[in-house]
Write a protein that binds this DNA or RNA. Sequence first.
DNA 1: GAATAATCTGTGAACGTTTACAATGAAAAT
DNA 2: ATTTTCATTGTAAACGTTCACAGATTATTC
Lengths: 349, 349
Amino acid sequence: MSKDSSRSQFNSITIIDVAREAGVSYGTVSRVINDSPNVKEETRERVKEVIDRLGFVGNRNARSLVSGKSHVIGLLIPDLGTAYIGEIIRGIDYELESIQYNLMLYTTHRREMKESGYISSLIQSGVDGVILILPRNPAIYLEKLRSLNFPYVLVDHQGIDEQGPAVGATNYQGAFDATEYLLELGHRRIAFITGTMDLGCSQERLLGYKAALQKHQIPFTPEWVIEGDFEQATGYSGAQTLMSLVNRPTAIFASNDMMAFGVMNAVRDMGLKIPGDISVIGFDDIFQSSQTMPGLTTVRQPLEQMGREATRMLIAMMKENTIKPGKIELPTRLVTRDSCKPLEAIQGN
Amino acid sequence: MSKDSSRSQFNSITIIDVAREAGVSYGTVSRVINDSPNVKEETRERVKEVIDRLGFVGNRNARSLVSGKSHVIGLLIPDLGTAYIGEIIRGIDYELESIQYNLMLYTTHRREMKESGYISSLIQSGVDGVILILPRNPAIYLEKLRSLNFPYVLVDHQGIDEQGPAVGATNYQGAFDATEYLLELGHRRIAFITGTMDLGCSQERLLGYKAALQKHQIPFTPEWVIEGDFEQATGYSGAQTLMSLVNRPTAIFASNDMMAFGVMNAVRDMGLKIPGDISVIGFDDIFQSSQTMPGLTTVRQPLEQMGREATRMLIAMMKENTIKPGKIELPTRLVTRDSCKPLEAIQGN
DNA sequence: GAATAATCTGTGAACGTTTACAATGAAAAT
DNA sequence: ATTTTCATTGTAAACGTTCACAGATTATTC
């Protein structure tokens, strides 16, 4: 026994209902909705009153159909498991709210599906632009986006898309700063756990680490560099490996905070103290990092701001209807908490 | 100097272009698109070929306008900071993909904005249904949704909306099981750290804890219950408080995993071992919980499945165009890892 | 008071589909 | 051969807006 199958049960009130009730034509109602200046103040009031009274809200589909703009942007992300992406989205949301845009979410879930087809369906589904966070393998569809002149922005994928618009953080500099900080604390034996090495950011962080060592004329020691994957368990096992070296490091720099947590746990489980026996430093500054004891010293990525910046770029492009290349790198910042300590105090070197 | 301001630059190919190219009428193309049976096989093939060749994808707005269905559902969430919500979304995504629906994301960011207005704009923005995760204060707009007969499902908010459709987990039973597990290990002094007490799930977990104690004739000791807020720092400070009691507990049950992490850190920082000196148990089983050392014993919430179940319910309601009340509680499951240990081994009681 | 200009309002067409219905042609039944 | 039936196709109207233009007011100038 099916209910009334009227076409659209919820958006029942239309511009025409409002017009009738207010005693004007639907054109005038449309003008009021769109803040056109060519409406007598008195009429405007009257129409607005009716709109409120009837609870009218414009039908987006009709509006989009004729205007060609959906006021929706697409967001393509690999996954939602990480606090990392959540913070970026917070920034996107913030900017979008101010211009009354909505967000359509596309999660690839790490499946490398026919991304090209994904993107094209996304385009045709009517979004006005798209933000791609940590895109997996963008070369295929970036071409398509560019050829269509479809507005897009890449977040955190520097180094791959040479031409397109992108937002990232100063990964190189951040790693450099962190390493130098440890050096300035007197550390000389500094280990490094990398991220997933097929990502640009991981490579840059490693480079920053090496550069800082070089600047201070500390020889690079391959056995102190462990390839990681951004997961906590790898930090744990990496630290175990490092700490069992005969020539073991006095400080460990992990390429993200999750791995740093793993390091901290491993070190503690060996009966050592942080920062008493070993200094630990991370990268990202996710919320949790301020919650541990001791607080994790780390390189802060301005994730929320990255989201905002990306959105601003996208909005500008949607407005001008053109893709303007230009890479933005937002500055990282060293956040010192209590997981690092001068070397002198450790063993008098 | 603005570019061509043609109406819609990306969806250029329409049903009419396809019709012309295939030598049929647009009606026939529409039929092919919608898999109508009344099309000669030969014609169907020809049209499909043209569709592929031209890369035609139907304009969603036009389709939605006439059909009254947008093939989009709205998702209202408080925040994205937690892995918790990410997992639920994974489940939603999974179900949605199979029926070709898209997801519109609305993040309230814990701001208690005029939610009622939010919801109404959401409804009118053309989504076909809405899933509300951990809704803050739903009474206001639930009424509206119900009176409009607008399909919705609540996730993880049992106990508030008595009538509406909702999906949750067996919080009571889960907490009961965890507590009983500790009792069976021989523990008698079991502390409990609550969640945010204005949430139904927090209350139920506390109830489950109390019930298990009662069943085993262990008196309830108020000083062993600490009010928490689901954040790691609270677990840390809570554990400090608990461990400094003269009559200190031998096990701590935290209402979620994040707080359990805090507990673990605090305990370790006091120079105690887990589970050697104290047993710790959590709730949620987020990914990280399998990554710590020792692995955290915890109550697994089937978050992904909750997302899937909620979506299935919503789809059914959208199909039948009616809200059918009915609460589903998915079973939790105790996941035993290495953070708990029989009491005998601790101090021979 | 008439002519002109400025402001405001109504109307028709369009956006790209779906849907119901009418029209066509071929096959089947008489 | 004529009618009936059925499968297939074409066509008009509708969905709820925006936009351009025409029409109707009102205000301004002569």
